[in-house]
Structure formats: C-alpha cells, structure tokens
C-alpha cells in the first residue's frame, strides 16, 4: 500500500521568451508517475532543470499539477492554502539544501522547532517543551543547542535542527531536496546515517532529491532518473547504478569520478542539458545521445518495463541494438 501516489503528473509554466517574445509553455514536469510506501525512500536524480525539485513540490501539494493527480494516504491532495491542505501538511514536510536560508535567524533553535507544533495546535506549553527536547536528542543535538541562534551552529548542526523542526509534527512523508549537498563529506555521512536511522525508527516515507548519485544509492529503495521533466529510468538502485540501461543514466553513472579504478568506460556527453523551454522533439535526450537513431528524433519513447527488470524510456533498450557495454 503506497502512501504517496503520483500519476501522470505534469506541471506547465508559461513564460515569455525574451523581453518581447511570445508566450511559451514550459513543461517542467511531464507525465511523471511513482509510488512511495511507508518506510521507503524514492531517490530522484538528474541535472539542474530536469524537474526534480518541481516533482518534490507536487508531491507535497505545494503546487497543483496542471495534469495528472497526486494522492496522499488514499486521498486527493486538497488545494494549497485551504484548511484541509494545512491539516494534511502536518503529515508531510520538506527539508532543503540550505539550512540557514530555511531558518529564521532571529529565533532560537528550540523556538523554531516548537513553531510547527503551535501552528498545528499540538500539545500545551509544557508538552511542547518536552517534545522539543526529545526532538533535539533524536537528531543528535544537545539541549544547549536549542538555546542558540542559527548562525551559532555549524552547517551540519543547522541541518539537524531543520530536520528536528520537520519531524516536530510527526510527519509520515519527508521530501528532502538536496539535504546534504552543502555539507562537507564527513558531516554528510553523519546526516545520511541519521536520516536512515530516523526512517527505520519512525517508518517515514521519503522522497530524496539529489544530484549526488552516490548518496542517492546509499539511502534509496527505488530510484528515478529524470531528464528534462520526464523519468527516463526507474528501478532498484543497486541494479540501476551497476548496470544502467538508459544511455543518459549510463553517461551520468560513468561521469562520477570515483577513487580507485574505473568500472565503466567514461562517456562524455557533448553539449549542455537543453533548455526546458526549447524541448527537442521526440526523445528529449536524442541531441546528446551517442546511440540515437532516426526514430528518436520523432517518437517520444514511453517509460515501460524492460527485460532488465526496470522501467526504461528508450527505443533502443530491449531491441537487438541494445547498447552494448
């Protein structure tokens, strides 16, 4: 039974091209479907502009999809700003990359962790204080950290404080948008371990958005690779990163510099990730794809089950021309 269910969701923004240009529709997210079960993590990877953060906002109901649907715990997501929506928001929380930007610099850490409890009317004053103290312990902070202001904490401690605040209302879904990208390696490992421990203890469902494939593999039960608003490959993280099927995933995985000998031959893609406002026809990846055929220019490949056991959106996967290693 899935907690969060996203079906064929699309998000279209209208923007002007240049100062005097006409209006163009930008499909930031286009036909994305996935499910997240309690206690499970869906990792979303992709480069800037691929729509991974917009997908996170759709999952939280911060935006309503232009097309498709988002259901949480079997119910359709209420419209943002309504009382129903606010009640539901207590069960789902967002953690950002930049903890300093996500906090109020004038309030102490304890005060900020207490705020969501007040907003959602949870407990009386004494109960709230006890809950804040417990939350600080849960995320590995000391009681005296609660009395400090955000600038008095290190980056890692701030991210812990943000997490404590997100956990205050006891959410069943956490959307983490690049939660460890701004942290140093040694601190990143602490926060990653803490996230997996908290998930195990509380059975929280997570959507973990990151450009860092190594971290995503570490935390995810399922991974979706996005390119220009669409999921191009989805499945088990170990299999997906060990033997990527989509040419884009192959390039992405081979591009990660790792200490020690290289496993896959490096594929360096030509060109920049395309502008979502100027989406190539057919498969959006075809201008950069080393194995594209004529059909890729005209037909958009659907995301379907492939013999490798994953979902892949590529005309060439599972045909004879399957991109040989």
């Amino acid at each position: 039974m899935s907690l969060l269910s996203v079906r064929d969701a699309a998000q279209v923004y209208t923007t002007r091209r240049g100062l005097f240009g006409g209006r163009v529709d930008v499909r930031a997210v286009d036909g994305v479907s996935f499910d997240v079960a309690p206690g499970q993590t869906l990792g979303i990877v992709g480069e800037s502009g691929c729509g991974k953060s917009t997908t996170g906002r759709l999952a939280l109901g911060l935006e309503r999809p232009s097309e498709g649907s988002v259901t949480f715990d079997g119910q359709a997501m209420p419209a943002p700003g309504t009382a129903d929506w606010r009640a539901m928001r207590a069960k789902m929380q967002l953690v950002f990359q930049d903890p300093l930007g996500a906090m109020d610099r004038r309030l102490t850490i304890a005060r900020q962790i207490e705020e969501p409890l007040e907003i959602h009317g949870i407990g009386d004053k004494a109960e709230r204080a006890a809950r804040v103290a417990a939350l600080l312990v849960d995320v590995g902070l000391r009681a005296d950290h609660g009395l400090r202001h955000p600038h008095e904490l290190s980056g890692g401690q701030r991210q812990r404080a943000v997490l404590a605040r997100a956990l205050a209302t006891n959410p069943s879904l956490l959307v983490c948008d690049e939660p460890v990208s701004a942290l140093d390696v040694s601190i990143q490992a602490q926060v990653v371990n803490m996230l997996t421990d908290l998930q195990a203890a509380r059975g929280i469902a997570m959507v973990f958005i990151s450009h860092d494939l190594k971290v995503v593999r570490q935390v995810s039960h399922q991974v979706a690779v996005m390119y220009l608003g669409r999921i191009v490959e989805q499945g088990d993280p170990d299999a997906l990163f060990a033997d990527p099927a989509h040419p884009y995933t192959r390039a992405l995985v081979s591009a990660i510099p790792v200490p020690g000998p290289r496993r896959l031959e490096r594929i360096v893609l030509a060109g920049d990730p395309p502008n979502p406002a100027d989406r190539p026809t057919g498969c959006a990846f075809h201008p950069r794809c080393p194995v594209a055929i004529a059909r890729c220019r005209t037909d958009t490949p659907a995301l379907r089950h492939s013999p490798c056991g994953r979902m892949v959106a590529c005309h060439l996967v599972d045909t004879e021309t399957r991109i040989a290693a």
Binding site: A189, Q190, N193, K214, R217, V253, P259, R263
Partner: peptide, 24 residues
C-alpha cells in the same frame, strides 16, 4: 581513512557510512 569511509560506494553491498564524529 575517515574521509574515504564516509563516502558512499557506487557498487557492491551498501554499508552504513563510517562517519567521522564531531566537526572541524
């Protein structure tokens, strides 16, 4: 050794990251 242990692997079984305690 700590820095290398704190990096998640790309292949093989997943293990708990050996984080270096404390901060710089």
């Amino acid at each position: 050794q700590g820095l290398l242990g704190a990096l998640p692997d790309m292949v093989g079984p997943r293990r708990r990251l050996s984080a270096i305690p404390g901060g710089v």
